[in-house]
Design a protein around this nucleic acid. Structure first.
Lengths: 328, 328
DNA sequence: TTGAAAGCGCTAACAC
DNA sequence: GTGTTAGCGCTTTCAA
């Protein structure tokens, strides 16, 4: 690698002091002669000089780095979330440092530690843990944080989330109208994940007063398949509510394996993955979130906190939409 | 935000010079008294001090930052690629700066410029453009680069890719055995994208000597649907070869809309998205890549170049697998 | 076993 | 209109 060109090289070559170069770099042309400006411009172009961001950051005492901690980078929800975040920061002077917790609490913590040593100016966090004191060091450092998809409780940082509870209440109405007697909620471990809890609790809330029973089955349990089978055979009209895209596809695969017909033998409704949900027969009724908008909004809010010390509401809810198709 | 704790604060509180603190931070305990070490340890814990990476980077003259430029962050291939890259660098002292070109050449260039000002130590690039001189400034700066998924030509940087050409040759054999008379290759614009070119050319190469004709239809063309329809009706036994996951699903949707049965009316084979490919009826035969391994390997190779100035082969091919299902 | 001092690339207060 | 100088937080040489 060549020796890097620095501000001193430019100053020497252009025959001015580095202060003047710095002024040029920061658009302070008020008191700069046309000739100087042009000469600096040429020199920079000639030497293909780029100011060193580390040095600028050191001086400015902030890094212009944003940390983004996601639960698992390898699913569609996350991809679209990151698209939204990236689109927003694209037009700012912030760079985005994305870290994947891989659904591992220790790794998440280690990632957040790394972000702190990188001096990130703010963090967008999809928390793995529900208790905010787990993130005590972030609180202590007073780092600006915006949560996405889920939140910790009691309130610590604002969160941009889907309208999970309300949409499940809406869903409950439909389920009642369709005369189901049992709903099986199929999910990853829901304890401590606010989005999943809200979907589950919303459904139960919407169902109160009806005769419909709700069973929760977590696919992290080794015997979820036998649990599921047992529950299905015990009731007449059953529907499965799959709390996210990956679980939805596990459910579809399960029903296919056991040759259960949708919706004749069993109803099915899922979250996410709507681009595939209408691809199979029958098309799956699903609740479609807007992760890109969640990401964009979270980025915008974080920027507001960082630049204007804005005070935000606890929750900002981005609407999702219930896509009625043929599986209920 | 509180005043940040610096090495000086620790030095003052621990009653030693910052040199000693620096030694502690860099594990240089050879000549350090036990007492000093313990006192420093306590002071750091007490003040919750974290060394400033910008300052370290400035001094060390490298940033320990890796730039990753992806064509489009919002698809499964990319997610899994990033998972692999992240997993590798997780255990190093490098951080990963991911930037999304959003399939936009200008934005890609702007992203790469930003990476350079961030002083990244190396770049993993999924190039949008085939001509290396488009990336001339990276060449001039002698930045270590490893390409993924695609490559520029003539040779400039090593690339970690799927065995695209060979797998298409294999596919051609199957297509011949199944007595198709026409293959429609459905793709995004293939010019300048080496992976797509290799899939297309591999198919043609494998088909030479047979009577089978090959049609290329690019779904970026506004009238691709009518082109596709026209081509299908002109032949007897036609199969569609969809060159990536997104195109595959466009094809499935098209066939569904036009009520064409797979494989009776038309054969179908696709790339990627194998987790959904066996979900629909009939299950779709597809070529399944290993993007996570591509990412991991690229990261590893880049690290080798950066640390040992390793010389790498032009191409490192990660095997993909042909998943025979029911759509041919 | 430890410290003083210089310097990484940049910015900004102050001077002229 | 431009330059001198100090300093951001850290590492490292040289000296003690």
């Amino acid at each position: 690698m060549d020796k890097k060109i620095t501000i001193n090289d430019i100053a020497a070559k252009a025959g001015v002091s580095k202060t003047t170069i710095s002024r040029y770099l920061n658009d302070k042309f008020d008191n700069m002669s046309k000739t100087t400006k042009v000469r600096i411009e040429q020199t920079i172009a000639e030497l293909d000089y780029r100011p060193n961001r580390q040095a600028q950051a050191l001086k400015a005492r902030n890094s212009f780095l944003i940390g983004v901690s996601v639960a698992d980078i390898s699913n569609m929800y996350t991809s679209r979330l990151l698209k939204g975040i990236g689109d927003y920061f694209q037009n700012t002077h912030y760079q985005v440092l994305i870290m994947d917790a891989d659904d591992n609490v220790d790794r998440e913590l280690s990632n957040l530690e790394k972000m702190m040593t990188e001096q990130v100016d703010g963090i967008i966090l999809q928390p793995l843990v529900h208790q905010p004191d787990h993130y005590q060091f972030l609180i202590d450092q007073k780092t600006p944080v915006v949560q996405v998809d889920r939140y910790t409780e009691p309130f610590t940082w604002p969160a941009v989330v889907s309208d999970n509870f309300q949409k499940s209440v809406d869903l409950a109405k439909i389920l009642k109208a369709k005369q189901y007697d049992t709903i099986i909620v199929l999910a990853n471990r829901i304890t401590g994940v606010s989005s999943r809890m809200n979907r589950y609790n919303g459904l139960k809330a919407g169902l109160t007063g009806s005769q419909i029973t709700v069973h929760l089955i977590e696919i992290d349990d080794f015997n979820w398949q036998s649990q599921l089978k047992k529950t299905i055979v015990s009731y007449n009209r059953t529907a499965i509510f799959a709390l996210n895209g990956q679980v939805l596809w596990s459910a579809v695969r399960f029903l296919k394996t056991h040759q259960l017909r949708i919706p004749e033998d069993i109803g099915l409704i899922g979250y996410d993955d709507d681009q595939f949900a209408d691809m199979i027969s029958p098309a799956i009724t699903s609740i479609s979130q807007n992760p890109q908008e969640i990401g964009r909004t979270a980025a915008e809010k974080l920027n507001m906190i960082m630049t204007e010390h804005a005070l935000l509401p606890k929750n900002i809810r981005i609407p999702s939409t219930l896509q009625l198709r043929d599986s209920l």
